[in-house]
Design a protein around this nucleic acid. Sequence first.
DNA 1: GTGGTCTAGACCACC
DNA 2: GTGGTCTAGACCACG
Lengths: 129, 129, 129, 129
Amino acid sequence: MFFQIDTTNGVPVYEQVVRQVVFAVANGALRHGEMVPSVRQLARHLAINPNTVARAYRQLQDLSVLETVRGTGLQIAAGSKPICKSQRTKLLRERFGQIIDEDQQSQLDDDEILKLFQNELSKKRKKKA
Amino acid sequence: MFFQIDTTNGVPVYEQVVRQVVFAVANGALRHGEMVPSVRQLARHLAINPNTVARAYRQLQDLSVLETVRGTGLQIAAGSKPICKSQRTKLLRERFGQIIDEDQQSQLDDDEILKLFQNELSKKRKKKA
Amino acid sequence: MFFQIDTTNGVPVYEQVVRQVVFAVANGALRHGEMVPSVRQLARHLAINPNTVARAYRQLQDLSVLETVRGTGLQIAAGSKPICKSQRTKLLRERFGQIIDEDQQSQLDDDEILKLFQNELSKKRKKKA
Amino acid sequence: MFFQIDTTNGVPVYEQVVRQVVFAVANGALRHGEMVPSVRQLARHLAINPNTVARAYRQLQDLSVLETVRGTGLQIAAGSKPICKSQRTKLLRERFGQIIDEDQQSQLDDDEILKLFQNELSKKRKKKA
DNA sequence: GTGGTCTAGACCACC
DNA sequence: GTGGTCTAGACCACG
């Protein structure tokens, strides 16, 4: 597993885990029947508390993305791919929508918003490269 | 005052107030010497807690955007315009940066991110119109 | 609040809380806009851990039965009554269905099942009276 | 053997095995002296873990429902029929009692409980037919 | 070994 | 005061 957790950005850790699992399933990186790492394993690996992982996994079960195999662990549920795809767009829209609302609330011009976003994006791209 | 507060979007109310004052000054919509409404007035008008307004005003004083006029109230401080401009870009960058980090963390392609953002922006534009 | 928790019957405590809130809303005993007791209050009152109450309340938020009023507490959400009604029938069906399946799995006759159920019910009624 | 195991309904698998043996003996479907399948056989047949079968058999031995036949396997014990009958009523009462408690805890009227139960039962009957 | 529940206590932001 | 998040550690049932 190749999850990245950033404990400093204010986004709840358990949400980051949920998000990344959802996106991985939507991408096809995780498929039906595959087991996810055990609560304890992932917790150790990410250096976070097992309860935090458990909370993320619980939420993924509520979304029907994971299902328990009793006494064995958790696996990607059947039919989870479309769920994750719609969930992904929902998450993205929420974030983007919020930021756009905020900017419009502040009387910013749409073109200006877009320009600033592109700026920031290309800056990040360079950093990454 | 023409502030819009959305108490349901998760963004702290006092932050929305700070932000909108900062942006208004940066835009030139508010200028040095203008008085801002009293804590109680604004609170009543926005239907929020006076403590929340007080907190926003305190923060704006810390930023040297507002200054007290003894026995009268608070006014836009001299020299606040450049402060607000730089503050504005800082705020925008923070938000954009955060969202971009999140998406990259989720293995999203940069072009895809931009496309989704443009989509959402044009959708909002239509709604507004 | 008049919740009753039985920590010995194997049913998770947080589920009992969820269930009772859902049923109370479905009954009309709790209505839109009413505040539920604070996490700490209810925890103290039921002699359970605040986290357990918080978990129940979180789940009720996911069901759109409760909504947060920031810095103030949690209230019964608008439109929660129909949700609770359907949720109530769902919960009842799940339980009843499970027990009936089990009995039929064990080759029990339907009439016999019903008779036993009535027996048990009238026994409990006497106890209660 | 004509056992049906449902690994998804939350009821422990070993309990389902125990229950069904007990009920079969109580019915007279299994009689003193009959051999039960070996742990491995039954496990393979039901597609469950051998440990689970072993655990069920162990429990049935504790109840004096099964007894070992040296070097051969397990058989239905002498005198097991009355044991199973009383065990059966105990199990049924436990289940019914629990569900009734829960409903009463949720302020449900006894008549309503019964009506809902009958509803569910007749629904299942149709499905079966 | 696995997940699930619960307790205890800390820290944070918000109002 | 409020809810929300996280840590730490315990106990249980299941396979």
